Measured scan of single mutants.
Amino acid sequence: LQLFIKTLTGKTFTVEMEPSDTIENLKAKIQDKEGIPPDQQRLIFAGKQLEDGRTLSDYNIQKESTLHLVL
């Protein structure tokens, strides 16, 4: 599923993930694309901070959802 990642600077980029992927996987993918170390990434969806060990489906993140990346 394609997700939109929006940064505080207003930049938006996309990543391609599976619902079974963990937040950790997502942070690694963001590191590949943007060079931001996972330990500096905080991801927010629907007002909640996402925890590394959980999956996208745990948070009911669907295709074309927008996640906010806070550094």
Rank of each mutant, 00 (worst) to 15 (best):
L3Y: 04
L56M: 07
L3C: 02
L71N: 14
L8T: 14
G35P: 02
I5R: 00
R42F: 07
I36R: 03
Q49Y: 06
E18H: 09
F13A: 02
V70R: 08
P37M: 14
D32R: 09
V15N: 00
G53R: 08
I44S: 14
K11V: 13
G10I: 03
L50F: 02
S65G: 06
L43M: 04
K6A: 13
S20R: 10
L1K: 04
L43R: 00
D39N: 11
P19F: 12
Q2R: 04
Q62F: 08
S65E: 11
R42S: 09
A28G: 12
E64N: 10
M17H: 06
I5S: 00
L50Y: 01
D21S: 13
D21L: 06
E16H: 11
T14H: 07
K48G: 08
R54S: 15
R54P: 07
N25K: 11
T7A: 10
T9Y: 08
Q2I: 13
D21R: 05
Y59I: 03
E18R: 10
M17A: 11
F45E: 02
D39A: 11
G35C: 03
E64V: 06
G10T: 03
G10N: 13
K48T: 14
D39F: 15
D58Q: 12
S65Q: 06
N25H: 15
F4D: 04
Q31K: 12
L56P: 03
L50K: 00
L43A: 01
N25L: 13
E24N: 11
D21G: 07
T55F: 06
H68M: 08
S20G: 06
T7D: 11
G53A: 05
E16L: 05
Y59L: 11
I5W: 01
G47I: 02
M17K: 01
K29H: 07
R42I: 07
Q49H: 15
K29P: 00
V70M: 12
E18N: 12
F4M: 06
G10S: 03
F4L: 10
D58C: 02
G35N: 07
E34N: 06
Q41C: 03
K11R: 14
E34D: 12
F45G: 02
K48V: 11
S20Q: 13
L50S: 01
T12L: 08
V15C: 03
L67F: 10
P19D: 11
L71Q: 06
P37I: 12
L71I: 13
E18I: 09
T14I: 12
T66Q: 06
L50T: 03
G47P: 01
V70F: 12
E24A: 08
Q2N: 11
V70Q: 11
G35Y: 04
T14Q: 12
K11S: 15
E24W: 15
F4V: 11
I30V: 12
G47H: 08
L8Y: 10
A28D: 12
K11F: 11
S57P: 03
G35L: 07
I36D: 03
I23K: 00
E24C: 04
L43Y: 07
I23C: 02
L56T: 01
K27C: 01
Q40H: 07
K63R: 07
T22C: 03
I23D: 00
T66E: 07
S57Q: 09
F4K: 08
K6W: 14
N60M: 05
P37K: 11
L43G: 00
T55A: 14
M17N: 02
Y59P: 00
T55M: 14
T9F: 08
F45V: 03
D39C: 04
G53C: 03
D52V: 06
K29G: 03
T12P: 10
K48Q: 15
E64I: 05
E51W: 03
R42H: 13
L26K: 00
I23F: 04
P37C: 04
K48W: 15
I44A: 07
N25S: 13
E51Y: 05
Q31G: 09
A46E: 15
A46F: 05
S57D: 14
L56W: 02
M17G: 08
L50V: 04
L69D: 00
E18P: 05
Q2D: 05
K27P: 00
F4R: 04
T55S: 08
I30S: 00
G10P: 02
I23H: 01
Q2V: 13
Q40P: 02
K63T: 06
S65D: 13
E16M: 10
T12D: 12
